[in-house]
């Protein structure tokens, strides 16, 4: 385990961020990207990630972890998920007592991502709540917003296709997940994971969302 750690929700996100970190110039394994299960949680997902995040925060004190970032989905409040604000508040509850300057209510950081300084001189902490650090949603929303220009037509068709289904099996708030999966299903190698968006250069590196996330990673893992 290297000391720079990026905690994410699951294996798909792990592969995605490992690819993104390589693309923006980090060496392989320079930063450990891992889902909660790798750190001893009984499962993956946001709840487990925030649970494990607390362990990792404690490991900053004696330098076992030297840099720490957390990426989770805001999820959808209207469908019973935490949503952006409650997700932020859950994380804030862990950070404030440990001396991090966490603003309440959250500042409107958008695609800059959250970076919190520590009053006791511990390393900064990075928090990114997908997709925009202010609205409900998922990493897939971020992916759709970051699609390369050459992919726009395919993405539009994927949206149309998903929209046109009668009697959808998935609930409405998973619309972006369905669109992203459809988009990925129509690639040269159909059905790749989120990581293939990076590997196959399907994202617009100059989009505000892509640049924002990359810069945030650079600020967290300085």
């Amino acid at each position: 385990m290297t000391q720079k750690t990026l905690l994410v929700e699951g294996e798909a996100d792990q592969i995605f961020f490992e690819a993104l970190l390589r693309t923006i110039g980090y060496k392989k394994q320079e930063i450990t990207v891992g889902p909660p299960r790798e750190y001893g949680a009984s499962g993956n997902g946001k709840g487990n990630a925030i649970f494990i995040f607390e362990d990792l925060l404690d490991s900053l004190n004696d330098g076992r972890v030297t840099r720490l970032g957390l990426v989770v989905d805001a999820d959808s409040k209207s469908s019973g998920g935490l949503g952006f604000l409650a997700t932020y508040q859950r994380i804030e509850k862990l950070l404030s007592p440990r001396g991090y300057d966490v603003q309440t209510p959250p500042s409107n950081v958008g695609f800059d991502g959250f970076i919190f300084d520590n009053r006791n001189g511990l390393p900064k902490i990075g928090i990114w709540i997908m997709p925009t650090n202010k609205a409900d949603g998922y990493i897939e929303d971020w992916c759709l917003a970051s699609a390369a220009a050459a992919e726009n037509q395919l993405v539009a068709q994927a949206r149309q296709a998903v929209n046109s289904i009668n009697n959808k099996k998935f609930p409405e708030h998973f619309f972006s997940k369905a669109c992203t999966s459809t988009w990925l299903a129509w690639q040269r190698t159909p059905g790749g994971g989120l990581g293939s968006l990076i590997g196959n250069k399907l994202l617009n590196e100059n989009s505000e969302s892509y640049k924002g996330l990359s810069n945030w990673l650079r600020k967290v893992f300085y």
Binding site: G40, D58, S59, N61, D62, G63, N118, G121, L122
Partner: peptide
Amino acid sequence: GKSVAANDRGRVFATVFTEERLGR
């Protein structure tokens, strides 16, 4: 462990593991 925080660098402190956390 010894604190790496700038404000109390080197201070010995204890990280607590309950049996549940330790087991995990």
